[in-house]
Nucleic acid binder design. Sequence first.
DNA 1: TCAATAAGTCAACATGTGTTGACATTCTGG
DNA 2: CCAGAATGTCAACACATGTTGACTTATTGA
Lengths: 195, 195
Amino acid sequence: MLTYTVPMATRTTKPRRSDATRARILAAAREHFASDGYEGATIRAIAADAGIDPALVMRYYGSKDGLFAEAAEFDLRLPDLGALPRRAVGATLVGHFLTRWEDDGTLQALLRSVGTNGHAAERMRTIFAGQIRPAIAALCAEPDSAPLRSGLIASQLMGFALCRYVLRLPPVAAMQRDDIIRWLGPTVQRYACGK
Amino acid sequence: MLTYTVPMATRTTKPRRSDATRARILAAAREHFASDGYEGATIRAIAADAGIDPALVMRYYGSKDGLFAEAAEFDLRLPDLGALPRRAVGATLVGHFLTRWEDDGTLQALLRSVGTNGHAAERMRTIFAGQIRPAIAALCAEPDSAPLRSGLIASQLMGFALCRYVLRLPPVAAMQRDDIIRWLGPTVQRYACGK
DNA sequence: TCAATAAGTCAACATGTGTTGACATTCTGG
DNA sequence: CCAGAATGTCAACACATGTTGACTTATTGA
């Protein structure tokens, strides 16, 4: 039986030399998943980018699925919407998502793979149910409408990301941050609190 | 050298016996592409569903890419938006898209594969540039803003389809047609004519 | 120092894929 | 009726992929 190294998160002792390698693998994996999707990204290519042998990926992450599961971990870091003036919610959300989308490729990786890979879809649903929905629920007066409202918000924000980062529709990809907030802000505002 | 049968579209003579087989292959391909995406759908599975040998798919469509190209052909059949009262544009567009999404799996196939397959992405861009953008351009007074406006509309409608048909987020998947129009209509209306 | 363990390499396997060419069968026109 | 084309089957190839286990090299602790 093989001996597997204990993952860093569950260990409090001295860091191991292999932690750096692990990190390089994970970084390369994120890049490849983000630009090629789950099935497009190959373990061999990821290992090559990390400068190690493909077999090491297996030793550290067990399988391609395991690697993806760890590479697709994502925290939206949503701010507390309750502490915000009501009418600022839409613009704040749009701006926050825009930032999170652009300084971390994880969501793009997820979005790309959501159509062809069940794990990616499940992970996206988890992010929705565990992060977006609660944030919206904490905001509105009637909690019954929170799931629907957060679903609508997700639809607009994910659709925009799809057009901008994956499809790269020229007019959408060319938009400036201010314009994006100007156009999408009111939409998200209405979905969150309006009508 | 092999002899390839002339495709139906370019022929005016008597229909051939193989036309039925072709159609069965294409139908099976659309189903598989729609539910599994480009790389998830296999020629073998498509052929099995069509009740013929995989080699026949190659004879008729040349390659998997060729099959996908033909299976992904899609006409949105957008109505003439100019002939409509201005304030009905949003609701009409949403309703029309909803119908087109649900009675034809082609858009779903495209949407699923857009993240992992370049041909699917290119086709989606073509549909945007060739069908959506012109329809919006024919609508608004200032034609300069048409690309941006159609991009925004595409982002909302594709995002909604992603959440509803691919991701199947419960609150979005459960929405009734009327509710969808009530919620998305005003958004699309503003993107098309507003602000 | 030296044995044990961690870190990493290497070659191969098993599998599923698109694709091909040789072959069999069915239809059709003269 | 029958040659030739159309239609379809079959087995195999070439290739890329995830994955495995044996092996080598480096590190470390007693």
